[in-house]
Write a protein that binds this DNA or RNA. Sequence first.
DNA 1: CTGTTAGCGCGTTCAC
DNA 2: GTGAACGCGCTAACAG
Lengths: 328, 328
Amino acid sequence: MAATIKDVAKLAGVAISTVSYALNNSPKISQATRTKVMEAARELSYQKNGFASDLKRTKTNTIALILSDLAGPYYSELTKGVQEVTTAHGYDLIACSSQGGPQSTAVKFLKEKRVDAAIILAHNISDEVIAESARKGFPIIILDRHLNNDYVVQVEVDNFHGGYVATEHLIQQGSKEIAFISGPPGSHDSDRRYSGYITALNEHHLEPKPKWRMHGDFTREGGYRATKMLMAQGSLPEAVFFANDEMAIGGMQAFKENKIRIPEDISIIGFDDIQLSEFMSPPLTTIKQPKYEAGALAMHLILQQLADEEVNQYYKLSTELIVRKSVK
Amino acid sequence: MAATIKDVAKLAGVAISTVSYALNNSPKISQATRTKVMEAARELSYQKNGFASDLKRTKTNTIALILSDLAGPYYSELTKGVQEVTTAHGYDLIACSSQGGPQSTAVKFLKEKRVDAAIILAHNISDEVIAESARKGFPIIILDRHLNNDYVVQVEVDNFHGGYVATEHLIQQGSKEIAFISGPPGSHDSDRRYSGYITALNEHHLEPKPKWRMHGDFTREGGYRATKMLMAQGSLPEAVFFANDEMAIGGMQAFKENKIRIPEDISIIGFDDIQLSEFMSPPLTTIKQPKYEAGALAMHLILQQLADEEVNQYYKLSTELIVRKSVK
DNA sequence: CTGTTAGCGCGTTCAC
DNA sequence: GTGAACGCGCTAACAG
């Protein structure tokens, strides 16, 4: 059905290679021939098969942004950073999801050399898969974990410091009993934020209590459930540090249902500074991540590596406390 | 650097075709040989080149979801609908952006046969590009426009009826002077909503006034600017129908800055029911689109077409009025 | 100079 | 279980 280069050659009455040269603007071809070829191509509405040329060129010119869930509340600022740099340098960008584990689209693209590089922000992709895919000439940037691999570069937000600052802020504002709602088990980001929390408590000689630690999973429902469990314990902490904003929003919902007022009865702080935060009532105090910068940096690092330049293996970006109204 | 099937064949001491069969679990290969091959593959950490096999198979097994902006506030419910159906049927899904016009990743993937089908929700892709890409055996579903083409199927939300219901609701609640803030020029969705608005006005013998019509562009800033312009006219309408929620949110901001209270001083209604709407203060009354359903339906239609089944050329899904607190 | 021949990239699949 | 053609386009080397 669809026309191939062969058909165009036949119609134009020239050799296949001539068509290729003409269509790729090689100076070898005369204007007359070029026009003839173009016309034939138009007539057959010929479109080259992208795979065939990628195959030959062993270069796809496209970068994959791998997210745990395409539909998720993923970081649009980050995507914007990636996208802008990508486009500015003439590369193509595709986003794919790692849902489905080893069968996922993400894994397929990572392994089968379908892209020239990848940026990964997908906690549900295993370290092994990344390690297996990493190879010379195929830069991978990871945004959500540590991994020691020569071919993998890490761009990390300073989660530890963010967690520390959040907790410190709660303490400064007068809280002593501070709960922590974590992300999914094994989440590197959540763990680092927790470390910051613990460190801040320790510095102020406050004791971290196990009952003030609940597990969420970075979702709104998870935050809601964890908060309900917190309340079920009978006594309430003075403040809660949610490991991300989504969970904080779920928590606010839970508190509201139990007529617990924020910040009068309890202080709340989140992490991420997602768009919704400032629209909550009260607006959510949180830790802002430089997401746009992270995305842009990741993409820059890829470009440098594709250009065979040396880059460091590790980059850390700092966070910022955004004070709004959810902390007393 | 990277190992090819040839290397595996050499190491395993078998023919290239044998490796291919073994790796694809063909019954033609004995268990012993299969194991030998697998081992060689592992040793070389062989990964097939996805393009080569797609090329040969002339099938990619992947579907493209084309959005106007990967970073935009795109419809995550829609994506979820698409994603779930796609995954359930063993297809892969990639999302790409049409930013950059004819040079965009979206256009490249559409034209160069890099995917088996596409779902388009990207007002900045031209009808021509779609028409040029449409061909037998390459299903395209469009969610945001009309287009008469044998190879293109349309899934549309009933924008006309949504616009009608929104306006009707404002009228029922006592408004007579109703402004309409439109989307970007040429937006099919916006136009249909506008028609619904006009029809409702007419039915109630209310006259649409040009001064109550402003142009936004579906962004928050656009809604903000349009609203400022509306206010600059001196007199205010009793209600405003924003062609989407993002603009309504921008509008609310503008009203707030001018100390105009919602809904006491002016009623507001949006369109889309994006996540933020219910968190606004006051919560935004709006028209909900069945986005998940639209996505799932689009993907189902693709599967049917890939299976060579006949499908209709046009599907319409209905909208729903969500009453919250922004209308008096 | 213009345009052609031939081989390549890598994996799949048919005929033997 | 193997050899070889094939999918489609690119490009070095060569002939006109």
